[in-house]
Design a protein around this nucleic acid. Sequence first.
RNA 1: GGCCUGAUGGCGGAGCGGUUACGCACCGGAUUGCAAAUCCGUGAAGCCCGGUUCGACUCCGGGUCAGGCCUCCA
Length: 469
Amino acid sequence: MKLHIHDTLKREKVEFVPKNPERVTLYVCGPTVYSYAHIGNARPVVVFDVLFRLLRNLYGEAHVVYARNITDVDDKINKAASDQGVDISVITNRFADIYNADMRALGALEPTLQPRVTHNMQAIVRQIQAIMDNGHAYAAEGHVLFDVESYRAYGALSNRSLDDMIAGARVEVAPYKKNPQDFVLWKPSKENEPEWQAPWGAGRPGWHIECSAMIEANLGLPIDIHGGGHDLIFPHHENEIAQGVCAQHSHGVQGHNPAEYARYWMHNGFLNFGTEKMSKSLGNVKLVHEMIKETPGEVLRLALLSAHYRAPLDWNGDLLDQTRARLDGLYGTLRKFADVAVREVVTPAGVLEALCDDLNTPRALAELSALARVLETAETEAARIMAKSDLLAAGLALGILQGDADAWFKAGASEDLTATVEGLLAERAAARAAKNWAESDRIRDALNALNVEVMDGPGGASWKLKVGA
RNA sequence: GGCCUGAUGGCGGAGCGGUUACGCACCGGAUUGCAAAUCCGUGAAGCCCGGUUCGACUCCGGGUCAGGCCUCCA
């Protein structure tokens, strides 16, 4: 099956053809680890996790290399470390671990590589030097700056010209810049801030160079797919391209080809929070770390996948309620057929087709519903085995439905409660066997009072913890 | 000012130039001791104004509204 993706650079949906199908490379911009990740940060993680799963499906697990960096050098990190009087590694290690745990809770697979800036300082220095050697950067007052006018394709990704940008002119003006749009590759550290040695003076890397250098060092240029939030298109990704291309060779009179850096670009849309913006000043920042205490990570994940990744997604309580209800339905089906065997996992064609169409997760979800219905209505055991296998395989492609179905409904129930419920259920089973309906209903009322909902089935009663009670 | 998205039924959200998306909620029926779950079914849409077309939610033009980027940002 052919994968088609929307390429930000070409601004259209194109067929994806990897440079080397034996080694498909994907890079997604990861977090700066100075604080907790919010739910908006999680959208690209979940979206590109689905892409990672799809690529592994199409090209084989061993043939996909997915890198998501950890940025552990940054002003905000410096500030946090200084405020707390600790080394930056104390901050970065702590929040990198929390970040990884939070993303795991959202069902994201671990990337193949998680390069860190501090571990790639030599590669960064090397790439900056290469850009300078190729005549695309210059040193000035301890800084190294990229010379945007030397790179003809600057603006190709974000569709803007240097003239437009000068018109906007909201860029930092500095006397040592040849052009206001020139951006920093290397800068001196302030006093008491960490610094690294470089030929043009001790200091630290600029914002954009880390990604292009880590990509070159860890994945090799060009990579196949580069992803991130669409706010990163400019300036971050635009600058990455300039760096990555110009690090490879001089571009005196030759054409400038952005594809020498990354062959396809994918960007996810933003989350909306009603009329309000999510911001620290409004105090409405939704941290994944906090949300997973209240809501199963799987619900958050599916909610993030409920709209197409490029579309804006309104994030609100209704969305979570509806997603929860949908997941309850799917897990309910799986619980009902818990005893049905599962055969080899092969992603159903309908789901694969939907995902191969620029990661159309809403359509994939529709396929999932159809598969659940097939399982519910299957008339033979063979059909049930096939249907259940399809449903689980479809879930795997999206990173959902892999948990124990019974446990899904009982999540949050203490051992004491479970014991109490099982006891009452045994009494009720006896009452029902004796057709003592009054006693049976009395026990059910008692269970309801415990926030437990009972469901009688042919194989006996099952129960679940009521949500939101 | 420049660039870029989006506007679909009560809600979420896809595809498609002419035929049921799907999910959540609701309603009717089947089933159940009663419920729940499940199944079957009904109802419900395409911001506004033009244009193209035999026919447009779907293409084109204009408008309105909302959001994003241009500065740290998923």
